[in-house]
Design a protein around this nucleic acid. Sequence first.
DNA 1: GATGAATGAGTGTTCATTCAT
DNA 2: TATGAATGAACACTCATTCAT
Lengths: 195, 195, 195, 195
Amino acid sequence: MNKRQAQKQFTREKIIAAAKQIFIEKGIINTATSQIAEAAGIAHGTLFLHFPNKDSLVVELLDAELSKFSNNIKQLIVETADVNILLSQYLDIIQAEEGFFSSLARELPNYKDELRRKILFRESLIREHFHQVIEKGIEQNIYAQVDIPSALTFLFGTINYYLSLKTSFVQQGSVIEKFKPSIIKTMKDLLLPVQ
Amino acid sequence: MNKRQAQKQFTREKIIAAAKQIFIEKGIINTATSQIAEAAGIAHGTLFLHFPNKDSLVVELLDAELSKFSNNIKQLIVETADVNILLSQYLDIIQAEEGFFSSLARELPNYKDELRRKILFRESLIREHFHQVIEKGIEQNIYAQVDIPSALTFLFGTINYYLSLKTSFVQQGSVIEKFKPSIIKTMKDLLLPVQ
Amino acid sequence: MNKRQAQKQFTREKIIAAAKQIFIEKGIINTATSQIAEAAGIAHGTLFLHFPNKDSLVVELLDAELSKFSNNIKQLIVETADVNILLSQYLDIIQAEEGFFSSLARELPNYKDELRRKILFRESLIREHFHQVIEKGIEQNIYAQVDIPSALTFLFGTINYYLSLKTSFVQQGSVIEKFKPSIIKTMKDLLLPVQ
Amino acid sequence: MNKRQAQKQFTREKIIAAAKQIFIEKGIINTATSQIAEAAGIAHGTLFLHFPNKDSLVVELLDAELSKFSNNIKQLIVETADVNILLSQYLDIIQAEEGFFSSLARELPNYKDELRRKILFRESLIREHFHQVIEKGIEQNIYAQVDIPSALTFLFGTINYYLSLKTSFVQQGSVIEKFKPSIIKTMKDLLLPVQ
DNA sequence: GATGAATGAGTGTTCATTCAT
DNA sequence: TATGAATGAACACTCATTCAT
């Protein structure tokens, strides 16, 4: 990559970085593209040189971020077969980018169909991993015979709820950190085998 | 109340009614005040005679609606002591106004602090009822010794999740109707006493 | 009409008047709506209160102006059966609003289909009158047996040519005035009966 | 011309060729310079290396094209002394590049003074040829004693009118082809000698 | 000489809110 | 009290032109 390309890549990254920062702070939907450009230290028009429109910037931003996230999760999966540990580590990863996921949870229902589908598809891949681990646990009589999809919707729904209403649950600091024990405990209760 | 006051009250109610309709159909945040006024059959400026700004209309609308909802719930509570029945009826009430609650779930995270607090406070009252019923059940060894607040956050979080992403879960018809059995079943599993 | 309506009407007319002025001076296509608003002495947004978009302002402006023009022509028609007189008076009417017709001739080919059709339809009505007068003249052997539609296209095409390239034909003053004798003379030559 | 100069010349021609194509398809005024560059297969900035600004590209393009056209015409002139034949062949040449001349007719009135003057000067050269041929015809009593400049403005004005409003006269195919007979017939009528 | 990323003023349009009627 | 015309800041997006590489 020559200097030109590097420079372009750098600008693109400045935009993405600024957009991500703003996304975390106040969401993208209610942020003007001019503000994003200003935060990135570039001219307003430059933004549209790198992204044909605001939507595609959002798509790219979320796609990149969720892709990183997915990769982290995948590695995790391979290494553990215990739901509690998996869940604990999953929550840690979310917590590490909690501002991001909180904004995502807040804005997700307002995204256009296609983008929402894209994001929910990524979530479904993660659910799949949880599904397999729980399924094995049930086979081995470690876990109760719950309906796994329902149980997972409870889990993901609850995490989404905490994230989207984060500011109502904590004044500062991490919601996930605060409620992690209770989330894990409740999942444990739900999976507790009948004795 | 004299005639003038009655007239004023009537206009106010027309606005609220129109706003509610629009709120259900497409949410309030992305609806222009002029459209609300038009739907109410009043002049645009009249709206601001009754509400100092758009936000306060939303506050009033939601407050009124949730107040009605709360009353319905309260009656319900008195009459039942079984969580399953309570939950089933609670879901029925939500389903009866699913458009409204779906919009609410979608927009809630984007409301200003005060309004969000108000709405969550109402939710907390309902949680309280569930809490009491479950608590009694635990005392009577009918339910497992779960952490009640956590269990309830799972419940309300999940319902919220279904509602806010309604269009992703069902193409048409009711999400609540579709997932009611699985919600009830999973809560049952969660409360299942160790034997 | 109460004061309110009168005021609104007045504003609308201010916009139309300003737009017409600008239309004459430099054309509407290359004029920003903000400039039109400024010239009208109103806020930029006000313009869109009276016209849903720029196009509809142009349509209204042209429609109103051409309608006035048509009415003038109609009266003329009734009163004369001599092509030379008719043409002379027709040119006078154009000359009276030459700035307007010059801009129109310049911009017409660049208008959207629908608007262009509308305008050409009005022109066709006028052609119709000329057609009838010439037809009668031919029947009475006053005029040569020319193909009337073709002859009229020559006439209207030529007038259009002078108008659209006005600034190339005269530095100041009226093109129509300048070339009126030659236009009339040439039409006369064209209609001159074989003797 | 060394290799570098040759290369430069080649690039310049690529730009002109691409610009011509676009000019024919949709006109230059409403085409972005970036699109022209893209069509030419060069970088956007390169365009401004060869032409100081968009206008001068248009000037060059039209000048070159009209120069070729003029040469064709000149040859024609030498070979014929009959207006009908001359006109017929003139229309054929226009028809052969009708897309180009249609765009030109549409955009001409909107060009800056200097460019318009340049183009009209070329037209005047062609008029000159027609003038001479008609003049001779009049001397030989083949044609009526019309005012030649006026008659020619009728001719060129009419052709311009057909070209600039081409899409209103034909849905597809050539306007010139369609109206060639009537143009020739009407000119004949106009030049018909009094007997 | 060629590149193409960057610029920034400009575009048509929207909308919560104000205020004279 | 009710009206609705007016406001003007804000929005996403375009484009001729510049200049470091």
